[in-house]
Design a protein around this nucleic acid. Structure first.
Length: 423
RNA sequence: GUGGGCGUAGCUCAGCCUGGUAGAGCCCUGGAUUGUGGUUCCAGUUGUCACGGGUUCAAAUCCCGUCGUCCACCCCA
């Protein structure tokens, strides 16, 4: 094989692509029921947008970007996530002047130069949404619910929702000092990575899998929230409880992107291996302002389609969708009937899905293929019977001759009849 | 970027340890029915054994390197 797909990418081929489409549709249905509208932003953006929005210290920016220089000398980057682009587009198209909450969703490929692993790809696909301009804890819950509801519709049960608050500008400052002090006290027992983190992004020490014993000795942001953040967090919890939505409070849940404030959440799944997050998100109340807009609170999340699809429950309704079989399979027996078969297939397509076989294989083989395709009818075209075709009902194993001129009417009648039988 | 497993037919894999010119099942094609499908039976096609180098009379098999893939670290969807 001369060419292979680039490392960390995937071809989504039938029949898997049908599952993908069903999952995407499920999300779209939920989003649109909640009055979120789709937004499509460019696959690449100026590198600076990501650096500024996502945070220069993050791994995504410091080592995982697909960055290139275009012919005009501009530094561009394949989007590693979509929130920055959405906020850029929100401001650039003047949506911030609409007033009220702007609800947007997206779906599409993202790119990160990581080493591929279970549930991790260089080109991967996310669905996500952003609710921009809403400060109420109720919006947080609305956003979380769109994900939980959709996954339940896909057949998931008993998902683990993890919840935390990472505070805001007011509480982060004092907390940071507190944390740094505590980190200083445990410096000797920190792993080498965490020694670095302690400087660059102290909160991320909580993410470390090796420093398990250390965490208990450190103050959590959750225990040091300012009054407003505390009230917001408590209100989110109360609203989730009122909806009967179970969750687990995780004071160690911190997220890898710098722009998060207050509510942070993740939904994890046990069968995913090390990359166990199906979805991650939270509030980013300062990002719009940081990007040059007016102060605007916002919240969003993104979910990994590969990961969701890889752990779909066995009884998921979408696993039943294997594509639409043809209604009619046109079998062409000899070269002489070819152009007539083409014409008949084309005619039939005005009322049905038609698969045409021009392989000139034996009729036996063509009928075998017809049956395998799931078609109800095989239309056999043979140049020796010049003005009629054989119309074979594959389930009943019966066939009749139909004059060319009557084919369309005949097709309409039999297909309508078989639909009634089927229903 | 670091570590480990794996790479043989379109697919799933055996063979590798103990070197001797490559196998099974599925799929596919033709036939048994001088064009009519589920099953069965008969016959047939499947390959630069990932790539490059080395050892050897001889390498799918042993050794080294490269690439790919999977898993883990890191990080995240």
């Amino acid at each position: 094989m001369k060419y292979k797909r680039p490392r960390g990418t995937q071809d989504i081929v039938p029949p898997a692509v049908h599952i993908w489409r069903e999952v995407e549709e499920a999300f779209k249905r939920t989003f649109e029921k909640h009055c979120y509208e789709q937004i499509r932003t460019p696959i690449f953006e100026s590198t600076e947008l990501f650096e500024r929005a996502v945070g220069e210290q993050t791994d995504i920016i410091s080592k995982e970007m697909y960055t290139f220089t275009d012919r005009g000398g501009r530094s561009l980057t394949l989007r590693p996530e979509n929130t920055a682009s959405v906020i850029r587009a929100y401001l650039e198209s003047g949506m911030h002047r609409r007033g009220g909450i702007v609800r947007l969703y997206y779906i599409g490929p993202m790119f990160r130069y990581d080493r591929p692993q279970a549930g991790r790809y260089r080109q991967f696909h996310q669905v996500g949404l952003e609710a921009i301009g809403g400060a109420s804890p109720a919006i947080d819950v609305e956003v979380i619910e769109t994900f939980m509801i959709t996954l339940e519709e896909l057949g998931f049960r008993g998902l683990m929702l993890k919840l935390n608050s990472v505070g805001c500008r007011t509480c982060r400052g004092p907390y940071r000092k507190l944390l740094l002090k505590a980190l200083d006290g445990v410096r000797e027992v920190l792993c080498s990575d965490c020694e670095d983190r302690a400087f660059k992004n102290p909160l991320r020490v909580f993410d470390c899998k090796r420093c398990e014993g250390v965490k208990e000795k450190l103050p959590t942001i959750l225990a040091n929230l300012c009054k407003d953040c505390r009230a917001h967090y408590d209100a989110v919890k109360a609203a989730l409880e009122a909806l009967g939505r179970s969750f687990e409070e995780d004071p160690y849940l911190v997220r890898g992107l710098d722009y998060y404030t207050r509510t942070a959440f993740e939904v994890i799944h046990g069968d995913l291996g090390a990359q166990n997050a199906l979805c991650g998100g939270g509030r980013y109340d300062d990002l719009v302002e940081q990007c040059g807009g007016p102060p605007t609170p916002a919240i969003g999340y993104s979910a990994g389609l590969e990961r969701i699809i890889s752990v779909l429950p066995k009884d998921s309704p979408v696993l039943r969708e294997a594509g639409v079989p043809p209604d009619i399979y046109v079998a062409c027996v000899d070269e002489g009937g070819m152009s007539r078969a083409l014409k008949i297939a084309s005619l039939l397509r005005s009322v049905a899905a038609v698969e045409a076989d021009f392989s000139m294989r034996s009729l036996k083989t063509q009928l075998r293929s017809a049956e395998k395709s799931g078609a109800k009818i095989a239309a056999i075209v043979d140049s020796s019977s010049r003005d009629e075709i054989l119309w074979k009902n594959l389930a009943e194993r019966k066939q009749v001759g139909v004059p060319d001129g009557d084919i369309l009417d005949f097709a309409k009648r039999t297909l309508a009849a078989s639909k009634e039988d089927g229903a």
